[in-house]
Nucleic acid binder design. Structure first.
Lengths: 225, 225
DNA sequence: AATAAGTGTTAACGACTTGTTAAACTTAAA
DNA sequence: TTTAAGTTTAACAAGTCGTTAACACTTATT
C-alpha cells in the first residue's frame, strides 16, 4: 500500500514537479498551495508524511508543523525551503520538524529522506474498536465478541465490517465498498462482496437490532437499534 | 539514561570539539579516529546512534555504515562530512545512512538532528529482561532459561521474541515485524520470519500456556496463559 | 404476468499463506 | 583458508480463505 503524503508548496511549478516525481515513485500525494488549505486537508484525512514549504500564504510552515505535531506525535514532517539560515533550521526543528532540506535540492535526495522516515515510522494503523448493539469488535485482535462467544474474523471480513460501521448512518454504494476494499469494481467482486455481507449477517444474527440492509441497485447500510 | 553515541572522525580537532559539545549535552560519546577501530567498538558495545565521517583511514564511512546496518537495522546512522556532492549523499543513504550533514554545520543543528532520531528509535528494547510463562528471558545475555536448561538465542531470535513480547496484547502485522527488525518487507524476508517463528515455538514448547498464534494473512500474536 | 436484473446463500475449487526441515549462502573468527 | 555460527532461500506439506459457480429468491420494469 502506498504512503499518503501531504505536500504543501505555494510555487505552483515546483509543487507540480515534486508531486509528479513522488507520484511516479508510487506515493499518493495531495498538493496544497496555502497553509489553511493544508490544515483542512490534515484534519480531514490521515497522512503518513508531510512535506512543507516554510513561506506560505495564510499560515506559514512552522505554525503548520506545530499544529500537525500537536495532533499527531508520530507523523514525519520534512521542511523543504529556500531559507537556509541556521536560525530558520532551528525554528524548523523547534516547531516539530524532522528534517530540513534547503532548496535547491535533488529529487533523489528527497526520496531517500522520505524513505528514511517512512521506514522509521511504525505502522500503527486502524486498530479501532467499537461496539455494535450487544457485539464488540476489537481491532487489535480482529475479533467480534458477544455473550455467546468470540469469533475471530478474517482480514477482509473485518475490513468490510469496519467500513460499514464507519458509515452506519448512510447507504454505502456497492462501488464505494469495492473500490475501498477490493481496489476495483467488476461483476465477480460484486458477488464476492455479497458473500461477505452474507457471512457478516450470520455473525451478527444474535442481535436482531443489527441489520445490514440492502438498498436494491445501490448498496448496503448497517443499521443498529 | 543518556544515549550512547559512537562518533567516528579522523580530524582530531573536530572530533574533540564535537565530542566535547555532545558530552555537555549529556550524551555518552565514544570517539574513534579510524574505521577499523570504530568497527571493533561497534561489535564490542551497543550504541544508540552513530555519527560517521565519510573519509576515514582504514575503512571508509560508507562501508562502515553498511556493516553496522547489517548488524542492526534500527540504529540511526548520521553522516557528517565535507563531501557535499549529491552522489556522495546518495551513496550515504544507499549504505544505510539516515541523515547526511555537510560541513561546516552548526552544533545546534547536529543536536536537533540527533534528537529527531533518538526520539524515533525505540530504546526500550535493548537489554530488557522479562518472564513468559515459566520461561525467563535475559536481555543482557540474550538467554532463554527454563527449569530444563538455558538456551542462548541469536540476536535476531531475541529481537523477534522481544518484539512479540512488547506487543503481546495485540496482533503484530507481518509488515510491522519485518519493517522493525529486517528494515524492509519482501517475500523472502517474510519466509525468513516464518523460520524464526518456527524456531521460537520450538524453544518455548515446554510451556504449553505460551502460544505464538498466527492470524492468517495478518501476522502473529504472542499469547501467554 | 412475464422478463430481466439484483441479491442471498452454500459449497467446492484453487490460489495463496504458513509450518517445517534442510540446504545454500554469508560473515566473522580461528 | 578453514571452520563455525547465523541467516536466507528452497522445497514440500498442510492449512486457510476468497472467488466463483450454481441455484433460489426478490425487486424492478415492461
Amino acid at each position: 500500500m502506498s504512503a499518503k503524503i501531504l505536500l504543501v508548496e505555494d510555487d505552483p511549478g515546483l509543487g507540480f514537479v515534486i508531486k509528479d516525481n513522488l507520484t511516479h515513485k508510487q506515493y499518493d500525494v495531495t498538493l496544497c498551495t496555502d497553509g489553511e488549505q493544508a490544515h483542512r486537508q490534515f484534519l480531514d484525512q490521515s497522512f503518513d508524511l508531510c512535506i512543507l514549504d516554510v513561506m506560505l500564504p495564510k499560515k506559514d510552515g512552522f505554525s503548520l508543523a506545530q499544529s500537525f505535531r500537536s495532533k499527531n506525535q508520530n507523523i514525519p514532517i520534512l521542511f523543504v525551503t529556500a531559507k537556509g539560515l541556521i536560525e530558520d533550521k532551528i525554528a524548523g526543528f523547534e516547531s516539530g520538524g524532522d528534517d530540513y532540506i534547503v532548496k535547491p535540492f535533488s529529487m533523489e535526495e528527497l526520496f531517500y529522506r522520505i524513505e528514511v522516515f517512512l521506514r522509521r515510522t511504525s505502522t500503527q494503523e486502524n486498530e479501532m474498536s467499537f461496539s455494535i448493539g450487544t457485539y464488540q469488535f476489537d481491532g487489535k485482535n480482529i475479533t467480534l465478541s458477544h455473550k455467546n462467544g468470540i469469533k475471530t474474523l478474517t482480514q477482509k471480513e473485518a475490513e468490510v465490517l469496519k467500513l460499514l460501521y464507519n458509515n452506519k448512518d448512510r447507504v454505502l454504494k456497492r462501488e464505494e465498498i469495492l473500490k475501498s476494499i477490493w481496489g476495483d469494481d467488476d461483476y465477480f467482486m460484486g458477488r464476492s462482496l455479497d458473500v461477505f455481507i452474507s457471512k457478516l449477517r450470520k455473525y451478527l444474527k444474535h442481535d436482531s437490532s443489527i441489520q445490514i440492509v440492502n438498498y436494491h441497485g445501490v448498496g448496503f447500510r448497517l443499521e443498529v437499534g
